[in-house]
Design a protein around this nucleic acid. Structure first.
Lengths: 171, 171
DNA sequence: TAGGTTTGCTTCAAACTTGAACCAAGTCCG
DNA sequence: CGGACTTGGTTCAAGTTTGAAGCAAACCTA
């Protein structure tokens, strides 16, 4: 099949997305590294645990929720365990399993650092969005996530005959 | 100041964004690693060079365009140079400077792998977006990027009195 | 119930990223 | 000029990520 290159609109969107996501992640990582001593992903792991019943989650569930690989999670939890923010426990029902538990210390850290984090998310993201755009962003991202995960049920743009407009490598 | 927590809408948007961006980057990295033997960022560096006049750019310019740190770029260009995709040249006007030049081999690699990459960007992102959403995404991202970079001229949402709605750590 | 497969998680080496420290070369005044 | 500061880029160690390989418990299925 001959390549369906990106239209100019798509290119602009793609470039803008790349730029924004880099800038956003960098800013948030920097702030959390400063104030919580860990990168964003690690903070997210703690945040996810804090919302789970009993503040505990099986490793695979946690990987699922955070959208990261199991090996990445293993490394992260090992570090967080060294920090004392998380504790590992074996599963009674499935002896292969391992459960990550947010410790009191981890909870305290989260409570201490959440305001600064939220403030940064606001300053970097939501302060630049109108309420409508917040909704649009959610829909866009939810659709994309659904599309990538299921990879079956497409939502939009199927079978659209795209014209060849340009041939830049698109970043 | 008492923390302005995220509203439920903002939380949903934020979570969806985190998930989508992880999934997207993972998918694209995997494909490019497969087909081009390098992660997305490295491909982007080549793509940026390919669009520059004479296919050459000062290191700092390149870092600027790709939104990454100079040290990250140094490492990346060193690797790409080993691969033969890029060559370094000194600047005549400013002898501190260094210029990255896309080689013919790099150009060929780009031409060879661009179709697959574009296809992946489509499959993971644009196939799930309506044309309006493409425009919305661009506006959102452009605004966010502008906001983070300049950090001065805000575009929307300034001085809005947010109500305290929830206190989850928000990921 | 033994063999084969899957599932849950870890391990390991190689690659990549980070941020601070560093080295020149340019620039600015006094 | 000559020191102080800035700018362009690299280096280094410590931390993180990747993907393939490994290991053991659970799940078949004959």
């Amino acid at each position: 099949m001959t390549t369906r290159w990106l239209t100019p609109e798509e290119q602009r969107a793609w470039r803008a997305y790349i730029a924004a996501s880099h800038l956003l992640e960098d800013a948030i990582d920097r702030q959390l590294q400063q104030d919580a001593g860990m990168p964003h992903l690690y903070y997210s792991i703690l945040a996810n645990l804090s919302e789970a019943p009993e503040r505990r989650l099986r490793m695979t569930d946690l990987a699922e929720r955070t959208k990261i690989t199991r090996s990445r999670l293993t490394y992260a939890v090992t570090r967080l365990e060294k920090d004392g923010a998380v504790r590992r426990e074996g599963c009674p029902e499935d002896r292969r399993g391992s459960t990550a538990v947010l410790t009191d210390e981890g909870t305290a850290l989260l409570e201490r650092t959440a305001p600064g984090h939220v403030e940064t998310v606001r300053a970097t993201l939501f302060d630049h969005l109108t309420p409508e755009q917040v909704g649009q962003l959610e829909e866009i991202c939810a659709g994309v996530a659904r599309g990538i995960q299921g990879d079956g049920p497409r939502t939009a743009g199927d079978d659209v005959p795209w014209l060849r407009r340009s041939s830049t490598p698109c970043s």
